[in-house]
């Protein structure tokens, strides 16, 4: 697996798109702290990047890479290499490169300029989102044989998780505003990894605003460590479920 990851990392590292993305992220990550006097505000701007841009790039890029490397995967599959070694090698290679870019562009400045619980929770959530969206990208790619359809679906998936889901949730809340909907809303948030990551970060950074709610549910959830622990666990689940689904499919798939 390490061999395969190494070769994927090596291959990605010379990819022009990866370089462009890396430079973009470096500019944003360091630039935000250079422009902003307040680290709090900078962390918020970076949260937007992590919740919006990064899932998109991860999904599309990982998907594209899988489709473009199909022949190579085929060649490797003809070697005495297990399918799971191959699959996790590809996955680990992709996540390693994305995470490295993330850590260099956002992690380092955060650790330098805002080394606190908030910064760390941002990094944790960001890294897990990379994990999750790479897994989702592979899941989509192994299910759709056709590249155009696969990438199209990945794009839809991104739109859905990035804002459509929350829009629907908002409509739902407007419709049922007269009912005690706090608990269902909190439950529904767990079905969107972007929301879970968001909740994870703001339960550390802005629990004060969330505590202002009258609902006892939120008090209970965000009052102590509970919200952080639960959302952290749900995030981890979100990473593991698509990954294992993709792995199963890949294992039984005609390459």
């Amino acid at each position: 697996m390490l061999n395969i990851s190494k070769i994927i990392i090596w291959d990605l590292w010379k990819n022009k798109a990866v370089i462009a993305y890396g430079i973009l992220m470096l500019t944003i990550g360091w630039g935000v702290f250079a422009i902003e006097d307040q680290p709090e505000k900078a962390v918020l701007s970076l949260l937007r990047i992590i919740l919006f841009v990064q899932p998109l790039v991860t999904l599309l890029f990982a998907g594209m890479y899988y489709y473009n490397s199909q022949e190579f995967i085929l060649l490797l599959a003809a070697q005495p290499v297990r399918r799971n070694t191959l699959f996790f090698g590809v996955f680990a290679g992709l996540t390693a490169v994305f995470t490295l870019i993330f850590l260099l562009s956002i992690g380092l400045p955060v650790l330098l300029f805002s080394p606190n619980v908030e910064g760390l929770s941002l990094l944790f959530a960001g890294a897990l989102l990379i994990f999750i969206f790479t897994a989702l990208a592979l899941l989509v790619s192994v299910y759709f044989a056709d590249k155009a359809r696969g990438l199209g679906f990945a794009l839809l998936l991104w739109a859905f998780f990035a804002f459509v889901y929350d829009g629907l949730l908002l409509l739902f809340m407007y419709q049922l505003a007269d009912y005690p909907i706090e608990r269902p809303v909190l439950g529904l948030l767990f079905f969107n990894p972007v929301d879970v990551a968001r909740i994870f970060v703001i339960s550390k950074t802005e629990a004060s605003a969330l505590l202002g709610l009258s609902g006892a549910v939120f008090q209970d959830f965000f009052g102590a460590m509970k919200g952080t622990v639960i959302s952290g666990c749900v995030l981890a689940t979100w990473a593991l479920v698509p990954l294992s689904l993709a792995y199963r499919k890949f294992n039984r798939k005609d390459l």
């Binding site: 937007r48 809303v185 968001r198 939120f218």
Partner: peptide
């Protein structure tokens, strides 16, 4: 209007 919508704090939508 909807206190529960605070849950969407910093959501892209």
């Amino acid at each position: 209007e909807i206190p529960a919508a605070t849950m969407l704090l910093h959501s892209n939508i």
